[in-house]
Design a protein around this nucleic acid. Structure first.
Length: 883
RNA sequence: GGGCAGUUAGCUCAGCUGGGAGAGCAUUUCCCUUACAAGGAAGAGGUCACAGGUUCAAUCCCUGUACUGCCCACCA
């Protein structure tokens, strides 16, 4: 006797299965050339992270895809891993150390890195353990880390190849500088935020003249670094002045007035102060016009190369002082309120300062062109397609990638400089190599120092699809050949540029092949009001809490059914509750069947039943199955989930199981077995189709049903047969009759225990057989004691009326009926029928409609009109009869 | 400034290669009918953002407008 609790207890089930899959290596994959591979590499989560909704969604979707492909017979592989997270992780650990009163500079690089590694070994696997709890079908023998030995080798190898090709170069450029982190950032690591500020209007005097030009600026302190004033070439106001000399206030430096196309004459005064060291636009103007670049801030954000009184001030202090001095000397014309966007560090939100500094850059020109080509040629396909354009546009306008970071946590740049005996760098050519070189090729020196900087964390991420398969050891190795290119990359749209595009670039550069065939872009999880989830806003829904409260399958199902491709989604507590209820429904429907299977044997050998409800549920199932498979295959996970839900609940449970109950009470043992056979058949197939989304509950029930192989390792059972859809229409008639009888009962407040008789006046001869054959169902489900079929039945007194599916049905309700209520009900029906008649008549009177609409449509409207006419006539008769 | 989404029931969202709209939650009524009250039955609730156009026919296609959200950009 199998004991199943009345309420699905996920706690008893989940731990058991997640452990089983890991211990039995259910999702481990080896090269097997007899099977087609299906590969996904996980977007490696930062080791600082613990599971949030974004991870939960992302991994659920990947797991669904993997599990479905496995059912289809692919050799599936999903590779797990984590990312060292460069700046993000270093920031976190710095903060922790700060609380302990430790300063990283006092600690020194080496000791600090020890702390980092210690921290990583203590907490770095948190997220992987959480993925295990979620039941993710990852190959746990392949866990990779972007900074482990093997991945580090890959980074060095890639760097050295780039370096030797001349694609990596060092240059002094204006970069985004975070004064808090003390490092440069790439352009996409900048986040812009609105900030209220001012526009300061400053007068610049013309040399040897009393005239002046007014410039508007949001950063008055940068005037200390001005080397020109620029105007638009087609600005008539300033045409005469171009080429003249200005005297910079406070400094008395002489600067020229130049013209440059980029200036918008309609903004401010049309004249712009040019500070090449503090602004990217100005920097470009400077390049075009050969202007001097004066650096006025250092890497800590303090003023340099300025008059003594400003030296060493912070930017804000300098601003205050400069404004005051300008005011005192009457150079400040006015101050306006102004809101604009300010660049912030994407990890610590400090306002960024553009700063001239020596950095390593990667020339991405050629790689970008190729990365665009492969997408245009559909070697890599975006799902949904709408993301292709942003991807392409971004790559088209991409500037070289600043890959060096002034951090300690990360891959140290493998470039070595020859040094003399005093420890100073020589002028010899730097060498990129895996280890410290033994001797310098220029001077035969043997002393070297390594570059201090580390690489942008995304550099190692860009190699991920190759590095997890050992590209760094042997680019012709069997695994790489078999699993690369991977099948699909699933990720949110926020890292298309940071990560997706760069993997394509690197993949093409080193493998000459795209890293994945499909890119599945899903949305971002938002709170119930559409806002971003963030700890500071306090609107975070923690997936671990949801798992604890509603179960992991509920979490997964809710996320899956909300995951329309490419669109952000809102999740709320209710969606998880409803998913939990669905799990319970699955449990109880299965429980019902399993209880009835008690003592039944040899079910497989039973005949396939031929009765309507069986044919119907099979037809409906085949249709659903087809839709679900198609949806899974095209990454429409939401559609698949909804189809499964809808079929299981409203067709299988609400109708088929209810009908089965009636047949199961029959004395006929054979009949009972036949129903059970269909019940079990559909259930098993449904469990399989549901198992990618809800692996725990489906695994459990599958096992209780006595299957020897676990569901994750089963193969999809059903093959598409010829589907006889006529049963769907016939069943629909039956359902309509039952529903309309129930409606009358409900509206007349007739007690459910009260059996009533029904008279079926036949209007359509063709419908009689089906209804008569299934009379028993109508009786049971609508609580009807007896049914009389006849033509021209006389309308009984005090009866209620239903017209549906070719019958005029009378329910004699002497003593039960409220005549007034029935009249009211019928007059509403009259109104509806009249409306229908009017609408269809107008259509049919329209010559153009008759001429141009397809025949099938015309027939449909005609039959609607016909039905409505009959309905109206019959209801009117009834109304007359009721008085 | 450019690009991309969205606007459908009180809320969260489906639907659409054009033929008078669906689900979940919430709500009303009835029911503890032995799979499930985390349930069942029945109901109420919508000029499908607005304005034009194409068409016999528009929630769906086209154009424009408004609002919302996101991304990109060198408006000081």
């Amino acid at each position: 006797m199998i004991d199943m609790e009345k309420v699905y207890n996920f706690e008893l089930v989940e731990g058991k299965w997640s452990k089983y899959w890991i211990e039995n290596k259910t999702f481990s994959a080896k090269v097997d050339k007899s099977k087609k591979p299906f590969t996904i590499v996980i977007p490696p989560a930062n080791i600082t992270g613990s599971l949030h909704m974004g991870h939960a969604l992302n991994t659920t979707l990947q797991d669904i895809i993997i599990r479905f492909k496995k059912l289809q017979g692919y050799n599936t592989l999903w590779v797990p891993g984590t990312d060292h997270g460069g700046i993000a992780t270093q920031t976190v650990v710095e903060k922790i150390l700060k609380k302990e009163g430790i300063n990283k500079y006092e600690l020194g690089r080496e000791k600090f890195l020890e702390k980092m590694w210690q921290w990583r070994s203590e907490t770095g696997d948190t997220i992987l353990n959480q993925l295990k709890m979620m039941g993710c079908g990852l190959d746990w023998d392949r866990v990779a880390f972007t900074m482990d030995e093997s991945r580090s080798k890959a980074v060095k190898k890639a760097f050295i190849e780039f370096f030797n090709k001349g694609l990596i170069y060092r240059g002094k450029r204006l970069v985004n500088w975070c004064t808090r982190c003390g490092t440069a950032l790439s352009d996409i690591e900048v986040e812009y935020a609105d900030e209220k500020s001012h526009l300061w209007y400053i007068k610049y005097m013309l040399k040897d003249s009393n005239e002046h030009i007014v410039v508007a600026t949001t950063r008055p302190e940068t005037m200390l670094g001005d080397t020109a004033v620029a105007v638009s070439p087609d600005d008539d106001r300033y045409k005469e002045l171009v080429g003249r000399t200005l005297v910079l206030p406070l400094l008395n430096r002489e600067i020229r007035i130049i013209s440059d196309y980029i200036i918008d004459k309609s903004f401010g005064t049309g004249a712009v102060k040019v500070t090449p060291a503090c602004d990217t636009t100005d920097n470009e103007i400077a390049k075009r016009n050969n202007l001097e670049i004066i650096e006025i801030t250092d890497i800590t954000g303090k003023m340099i190369n300025v008059p003594e009184k400003y030296k060493g001030l912070t930017i804000n202090e300098a601003r205050e002082k400069v404004v005051k001095d300008l005011q005192d000397l009457d150079f400040l014309e006015k101050i306006e309120d102004y809101a604009h966007k300010v660049g912030k560090c994407y990890r610590c939100s400090t306002t960024l300062e553009p700063l001239m500094s020596e950095q390593w850059f990667l020339d991405v020109g050629e790689m970008s062109k190729k990365a665009i080509e492969v997408v245009n040629e559909q070697n890599t396909v975006f799902h949904p397609e709408s993301w292709k354009r942003p991807y392409t546009l971004w790559l088209e306008n991409l500037r070289d990638w600043c890959i060096s970071r002034q951090l300690w946590w990360g891959h140290r740049i493998p470039v070595y400089y020859c040094i003399d005996e005093k420890g100073n760098k020589t002028n010899c050519k730097p060498i990129a190599s895996f280890d410290k070189p033994t001797h310098c090729s220029c001077c035969n020196g043997t002393n070297f120092v390594q570059d201090e900087d580390v690489l942008d964390t995304w550099f190692s991420s860009a190699l991920w699809p190759m590095s997890v398969f050992g590209w760094q050891d042997d680019r012709n190795n069997e695994e790489l050949q078999y699993f690369y290119p991977t099948s699909v990359l699933a990720t949110g749209h926020e890292i298309i540029y940071l990560w997706v595009a760069r993997m394509v670039q690197f993949g093409l550069e080193f493998m000459k092949e795209v890293p994945y065939k499909d890119v599945f872009i899903h949305g971002i999880v938002r709170d119930k009001h559409g806002g971003k989830m963030s700890k500071s806003l306090g609107n975070v829904v923690d997936p671990r809490e949801i798992m604890h409260k509603y179960g992991t399958d509920a979490l997964r199902f809710a996320l899956a059914s909300a995951a329309a491709p490419g669109r952000d989604m809102q999740v709320s507590e209710e969606s998880f509750l409803s998913a939990r209820n669905f799990a319970n429904k699955i449990w109880n429907a299965s429980r019902f069947i399993i209880m009835n299977l008690e003592g039944i044997e040899n079910l497989e050998k039973e005949l396939t039943s031929v009765e309507l409800s069986d044919k119907w549920i099979l037809a409906e199932f085949f249709e659903t199955s087809l839709k679900v498979k198609k949806a899974y295959d095209s990454y429409n996970i939401d559609t698949a989930s909804r189809e499964l839900y809808d079929f299981f609940w409203t067709k299988y449970c609400d109708w088929y199981i209810e009908l089965s109950k009636i047949r199961m009470t029959s004395e006929n043992r054979q009949e009972r077995k036949q129903v059970l056979k269909i019940l079990v058949y559909v259930l098993k197939n449904m469990l399989q189709l549901l198992s990618p989304v809800m692996p725990f509950i489906t695994s459990e029930i599958w096992q209780i049903l006595g299957e020897k192989k676990i569901i994750a390792e089963s193969k999809l059972l059903n093959e598409q047969k010829e589907n006889d859809k006529s049963s769907i229409d016939e069943m629909k008639s039956l359902q309509e009759i039952i529903v309309s009888l129930r409606t009358i009962r409900s509206e007349m407040n007739i007690s459910p225990v009260c059996q009533i008789e029904a008279l079926f006046n036949v209007l359509d001869e063709n419908k009689v057989k089906v209804v008569k054959d299934n009379e028993n169902y109508i009786k049971q489900l609508a609580k009807i004691s007896s049914i009389t079929f006849a033509k021209n039945i006389t309308r009984p007194k005090n009866s209620a009326l239903a017209i549906t599916s070719g019958f005029e049905i009378f329910l004699p309700l002497e003593g039960l009926i409220d005549i007034e209520k029935e009249k009211l009900r019928l007059s509403k029906e009259v109104a509806l029928a009249k409306q229908e008649i009017e609408r269809t008549t107008i259509k049919l009177q329209n010559d153009n409609f008759i001429k141009r609409a397809p025949n099938s449509e015309i027939e449909k409207v005609k039959s609607k009109l016909n039905e409505a006419n009959i309905k109206l006539e019959k209801i009117n008769e009834s109304l007359k009869f009721l008085g």
